[in-house]
Design a protein around this nucleic acid. Structure first.
Lengths: 137, 137
DNA sequence: TTTCCTATCATACGAAAGTACCAAACCGCA
DNA sequence: TGCGGTTTGGTACTTTCGTATGATAGGAAA
């Protein structure tokens, strides 16, 4: 917000300066009004360009990683289950998931079964697809 | 390129119109030059804004996921194999893939086995991860 | 024509994955 | 202190997946 006020302040000052300069120069007769209009056009074209550039930059930032934790809670998915879901997306087998998390394969299966029912799916590949679709991965 | 020429053509015409209008009005004395400068400023601010917006839109579009068919050929993946890979990413079982493509489960298994070796993976979930990483999905 | 590639299908076997129970330990909360 | 949820683990069983091997058929290339 502070930036917006600052930018518009600058713009108004620039505009007023142009007014003054144009009045003076036209009186003096050394420059035509067309030149001022042209200058104004170019300057504000660039300003508008830059303003939009800045604005889009901000919109670009929050794009890459949207992990919807609200959705996770909404579905009642626990931390552990989500942790296992991540390992799943890395292509690990149940056994490998167990090894990386220091738990038995049985436990992994239990968590996955619960996860499947919460996602209303029957297979790990379906879980992956649904998880991505729901932005919880 | 055609668009760029068109847009700049419009801009030049607009500018010339303003010149004419300003000359006429100043002669007639019914409007001050400040008003024209202000109008010019606003118009070109908006134009600059819109131009940058379009440009950014184009930069944003190619983000999601282009399907790298060169990579597919490079890995020697056949059309049928890739077709099955797509079904895989939809979370279908071998049997279901067979049904949607009107082939037997055996054939699906054969294609998948070949696909796995071409992708250097051992499981379907790994295949999915690798396929996305290589932009062939 | 013979060879190579692709697509198709089958059988058999072992390895994963998934389901259905059950149960113990822990933790926070009422 | 007991209740409910989470995490952990187990057994037993079914289903799915993956591999190996072989076979047939069509099309493209040599």
């Amino acid at each position: 917000m502070k930036k917006t006020i600052f930018v518009f302040g600058i713009l108004i000052v620039a505009l007023l300066s142009l007014f003054q300069l144009s009045s003076y120069s036209i009186m003096a007769g050394d420059l035509s009004s067309e030149v001022f209009i042209a200058i104004t056009a170019i300057v504000f074209l660039i300003v508008g360009f830059l303003l939009q550039y800045r604005r889009k930059e901000r919109l670009l930032q929050p794009k890459p990683a949207p992990i919807d934790s609200d959705k996770i809670n909404e579905l009642g998915i626990t931390d552990r289950e989500h942790e296992i879901l991540v390992k799943l997306s890395e292509g690990l087998s149940n056994k490998e998931i167990g090894e990386t998390l220091f738990i038995s394969e049985s436990t992994v299966k239990t968590h996955l079964s619960n996860l499947y029912s919460k996602l209303s799916v029957k297979r790990r590949t379906q879980a992956l697809q649904k998880a991505k679709q729901l932005h919880i991965l």
